[in-house]
Structures are given as C-alpha cells and as structure tokens.
Write a protein that binds this DNA or RNA. Structure first.
Length: 307
DNA sequence: CTTACGGCCTGGGTGC
DNA sequence: TGCACCCAGGCCGTAA
C-alpha cells in the first residue's frame, strides 16, 4: 500500500520520464475515482509536463500551457497540476504505448515520446483531479508536516499536546503527512512504544526515540524503494524491497527480532496493529470498575483463529 | 473540540 | 469443486 516511501519512489521514477514531455491525448476507463473526468480530458491534451512532486501521499504532476504559443501577451502562466492519490492499490507507470496494459487500467495519457503514462487501480480507492489556480492550497493545505522535514521540536509539540493513541496520531494526515499502517507500526517497534500509548503520556526520551525511528524507517524504506506487500510497484513497474525488512508488520505469531517474543496483533484506531508485547509494554489500563485481578485461567487451547 | 465507525472497492485466503 | 464470507486499509462523512 503506497505510503510516503512508495509515493516518493514513484515520484523519483516519474521525474526520469515525464518532465519536458507534452501530453498528446487522454483516454479513460472507469472514472468514479476522478473528481471531474471531463476536465481531465479537456485540460490535459497539449499541456507540457514541467515537474513531479510529492506532498504527503499525494503526487503532483505540474503542467504548463503547451509551448509559448500564446506569446502574444499571455496571462501569467497559471499553475495547473494533476493531483493523484494512489489509495490502496494504485499504480502510476510509464510504458511504451504499444505494450499491453494490465487489467484495471483506467487512465491512459499518451506522451510525445511514444510512451504512455498509465494509472492502474484494482480497487479504485485512489483519486485523481485537476488543480488549477488556488486549488493547490485548498486541496493540500490542511495536511500536517512532512515527517522528514519536521524538526524534533515540531514533532514533539505535535504529539505531546494530544491525548489520542500514538498510533492514531501517526496515521492522522492532518498531524503528519505520509505515514500509513506499515511505517507506523515499524516506527513504534523501533522506538519501543506501544501503539495504545497516549501522545501526551510519552516521555521526552520516548518522543526523541520515536522521532528518530520515524525518520530512520522512512529513509531506509525510500532507499529500498518501498514495501511491496500487495500491488505496489514503482514508476517502472518494479517491486520494492523494504517488505523484507519489516520487523512487525504482518508478522503476527512470529518472533520479535529483538527478544524472540511472539508478535501480536490488536486493533488500534480501527487498524490492525502489530507490536512486540515485551519490547513495547502496554500502558496502564484505564481504571475499570474493579477488574478482578487474577482470572487469567481461561487460557485454554486458544486456537489461532483462522479467518 | 475529540474519537469511533461505516462505506467505498476488489482479490485472495479460508472454511464448509 | 464451488461458494459465502472475511479481511486488507487509504480517506471521507457522519454520529456520539
């Protein structure tokens, strides 16, 4: 699932292929994930691609008004961009125009070098829209800080003021932009913090460890070109390798790399959360109405409930 | 203000 | 072999 490192990898790949290219035409399949399909078809053809950027998990393809054709006193070049979110299963790949497209490919953008930029998305949780003047701010302005750009002081202040589960805070794109379930769990494991700890209860040294862990995990994942756990591929259709370095994500029942304790899975903030119960001790239970102390005798076979 | 939860969507795995 | 069901989890809208 594309999170910050995966989107960053796609962006870097597209930067090799897109800037300088002119868009010839657009062909659409299913369009229910596109905000305004007609606008896409009308605005893109003729535009020249000037750059590719990442903002959190969003990807922006910047566009200029074709050539300097309107040299007769044109308007101050409007800033138009194609905004893409890959959702869960989105892929943005450039291919030779004549090569067969994989199933579930719904956007075909033909370029002036004989290649084609294609958007493939099995589940269509992604989104695509045209941003014109001012649209950038309204679409992206509410997102939080980029975890790789935030200073430790900024990071600390974002977390320390909040009484939500740290897992939820790291996932909240309005707090930090770019983290998803994989990198949240991996960062918490590295920092030895239980996903149900509250942000406000983290000690200064824990906040420092978490800040470092987030940066280290994200940077290493970018270096390995992302995690390919389901459908993720980069702009050339290649898989990443960081899934080979996962320490907790999707490792329920396997041994912790630090202490050999079995990794557990619980639901926090509505998401599967993998952690080591020994390295990441649970917070003190919120006082419940006289919880009977020792009743842990019901630990029978506990069959690994296969779903 | 906060957090919780359902809905969207498809394919792969599992149980019967 | 077939088939119903659960689950993955991005984000958003709505409820509490």
């Amino acid at each position: 699932m594309p999170e910050l490192p995966e989107v960053e990898t796609v962006v870097r790949g597209l930067r090799m292929a897109l800037p300088g290219r002119r868009i010839l035409s657009v062909r659409l399949g299913k369009t229910d994930f596109i905000e305004d399909p007609v606008a896409l078809e009308q605005i893109l053809p003729g535009k020249r691609i000037t750059g590719v950027r990442r903002h959190g998990k969003f990807l922006l393809i910047d566009l200029a008004p074709a050539v300097a054709a309107a040299d007769a006193g044109s308007q101050p070049a409007e800033d138009t961009s194609l905004l893409v979110h890959l959702g869960m299963t989105g892929q943005l790949v450039t291919s030779p125009a004549e090569s067969p497209a994989p199933p579930h490919t719904h956007v075909f953008v033909s370029l002036d070098d004989g290649r084609e930029l294609r958007y493939t998305d099995i589940r269509r949780f992604g989104q695509m829209r045209i941003l014109a003047n001012g649209g950038h701010a309204s679409a992206l302005g509410k997102l939080g800080l980029d975890p790789l750009e935030a200073t430790e002081a900024e990071f600390t202040s974002l977390i320390h003021a909040r009484r939500a589960h740290i897992k939820a805070l790291l996932l909240d794109q309005h707090v930090l932009r770019g983290m998803g379930n994989i990198y949240t769990d991996e960062s918490l494991w590295r920092a030895r913090i239980h996903p149900r700890r509250l942000g406000a209860n983290l000690k200064p040294r824990e906040l420092r460890a978490l800040y470092r862990a987030v940066r280290d995990v994200l940077n290493e994942a970018i270096r390995l070109r992302g995690s390919s756990v389901s459908d993720y591929v980069d702009a050339d259709g290649e898989r990443g390798e960081f899934q080979l370095r996962h320490r907790v994500y999707q490792r329920e029942g396997e041994k912790c790399f630090r202490c050999k304790t079995r990794i557990r899975r619980i639901i926090v903030a509505g998401r599967s959360s993998y952690f080591c119960p020994h390295c990441q001790p649970a917070p003190k239970l919120k006082r419940r109405p006289t919880a009977p102390r020792s009743r842990a005798i019901r630990r029978k076979s506990a069959p690994r409930r296969a779903r």
